[in-house]
Amino acid sequence: MADPAYRAAGEGALRIEPLGELAAIFDRRSQQTHLVTQPMPEILAALAAGPCDATTLAARLADSFDLDGEGDAAAILAERLDELAAMGLVEPV
């Protein structure tokens, strides 16, 4: 299957406030609030370095996180990216 690439929201578009184990994300473009769990904020942060696909994202996150099994991680991240795109927080390139 193709591994689509996504781009993060522009700088300043999102306001992210940790709330205990959750994070509340306010999207200034849509005026919507999204409550997410880890690793969503980490994905958004990693994507800010530039648009990329799930495989590249896994590599970026591996630098700061302990991801077990590269292949699995990319598949899981692809799902999360798809969810973030449905929320409008990231956009397919």
């Binding site: 200034r28 473009r29 849509s30 005026q31 919507q32 409008g88 956009e91 397919p92």
Partner: peptide, 19 residues
């Protein structure tokens, strides 16, 4: 706020219809 919310629908339509 309401205008931004409404214009987000235009953006979502663009993302759906553009491709």
């Amino acid at each position: 706020v309401a205008t931004a919310q409404a214009m987000w629908e235009a953006e979502m339509a663009r993302r759906a219809l553009g491709p």
